[in-house]
Amino acid sequence: MSFVEENAAYENWMRTVCDVVEDDLERKHDRMSKNTFKFLRATFFRWAHAIKTTAPEIMGLPAPLAVGDAHVENFGTWRDAETRLVWGVNDHDDAAEIPYASDILRLAVSVRLADFSVGNRDAAQAIFEGYGEGLRDPGPTLLDQKEMWMRDYVTVTDEQRKSFWDEIDDYPDASPSPEAETALLESFPTGSKFERFARASKGAGSLGRPRFVAVARWRGGRIAREAKALLSSGWDWAAGNPGRASRLDDAVNGETSAPDPFLHTDRGFVVRRIAADTRKLERDSDFDRKLDTRLMRAMGFEIGSIHASTSRLRQAMLNDLERRDAGWLYETAKATASAVETDFAEWSASNA
């Protein structure tokens, strides 16, 4: 099936399971046409097709509960139940049981397609080594204790704090579905004074899903929550299992993580607290400047740590990893990036 045909099939399926926001879907199409990195981010449902073509050998590897949509922008910060600042994978919407090599391969492909200043071979080396470390000695990345060096990568300025609330205030008013409304209101602490509901238009692969924000006041200040429609993983959809239940809750609460206590699923939505200092780290000039092999190694470590939560497969993953090296990751990422570029060219031609 061509990419254009598969994309249409995926979007038609989306319309059967949630109230698709057609304007956002058009916005997604526009972003997909910008460059191959944005295209990759928006098309995880196509990923299984790509790796079956370029790396069919990994399809039979041990399949832990994995991130799925791993890429260089899928990392961010949150506060755990002890209010410690944690850094790690920020979006588990596409979590599923996936051959372990897929996550690190997709991360390496995303670095290549984003065209960062870090060399692709060095990036593959850092990701590969970090992954092995995370698999062997898993645990959360705590910025208040173990990994204080990383705080410089996630520092929030006063300008960014103001910008966060300015963006919230600019969101248009909305009337969420009864399910989303209840999920949002029940996520606020007792004594909150509700102010308004708004509609947010964010993300890449999730553009088109209903996404709402609720704002309230609580004990002297404003607080906010977000609810985004929950779908089955794009991996399961591609495998012909579109009705398989989401594994998001299992993924975020793995035994090797320090989960965000505000993040959960409810009534068909992913609900989370949003704030200026608990955020997804997205690409900008500052991010590009700071991105280096040390941070890429940390990304690899985080993925390895997540995979280690599937403890029954940990030794099998380690055994297979020992038969590979960073050169394998570099070469496979190169071939897979080429397959993504082919799909991007088809999409661009169809929308010219």
Rank of each mutant, 00 (worst) to 15 (best):
V4C: 09
E5P: 01
N7A: 15
Y10Q: 14
T16W: 04
V17P: 08
C18T: 12
V20T: 11
V20R: 02
V20N: 05
V21G: 02
D23W: 01
D30P: 00
M32W: 12
K34Y: 14
T36Y: 03
F37S: 13
F37C: 08
L40S: 09
A42H: 14
F44T: 03
W47D: 10
I58P: 05
M59N: 02
G60W: 02
L61G: 09
A63R: 04
A66W: 02
H71M: 08
H71Q: 08
V86D: 06
V86P: 00
W87T: 02
W87A: 06
V89K: 01
A96P: 09
I98C: 04
I98V: 15
D103K: 02
I104S: 12
R112P: 04
R112A: 14
F116M: 02
V118S: 01
G119M: 07
N120F: 11
A123H: 00
A124Q: 04
Q125C: 06
G130C: 10
G132P: 04
L135Q: 05
L135D: 06
G139R: 11
L142Y: 06
L143A: 07
M148K: 13
M148R: 12
M150I: 12
D152G: 12
K162D: 13
F164W: 11
W165P: 03
I168D: 03
D169K: 14
S175L: 13
P176E: 08
L185T: 11
R196C: 14
R199T: 03
R199D: 00
K202P: 01
G208K: 03
P210Y: 05
P210L: 02
R211D: 00
R211T: 07
V215L: 13
R217V: 05
W218M: 02
G220C: 12
E226A: 10
K228E: 04
S232E: 09
S233C: 15
G234F: 11
D236S: 10
A238F: 13
A238R: 12
P242T: 10
R244I: 05
D249N: 09
D250K: 13
T256V: 03
P259F: 08
P259K: 05
D260F: 10
L263D: 03
G268I: 03
V270G: 00
V270T: 04
R273I: 08
A276E: 01
D277H: 00
T278E: 07
R283T: 11
F287S: 00
K290D: 04
L291G: 01
T293G: 00
T293W: 01
I306C: 08
A308H: 10
S311K: 09
S311D: 13
A316I: 02
M317H: 08
L318M: 15
N319K: 15
N319Y: 12
L321S: 02
L321A: 07
L321K: 01
A326S: 14
W328R: 00
E331N: 02
T332F: 04
A335S: 15
T342W: 01
D343L: 08
D343G: 06
F344L: 10
S348Y: 11
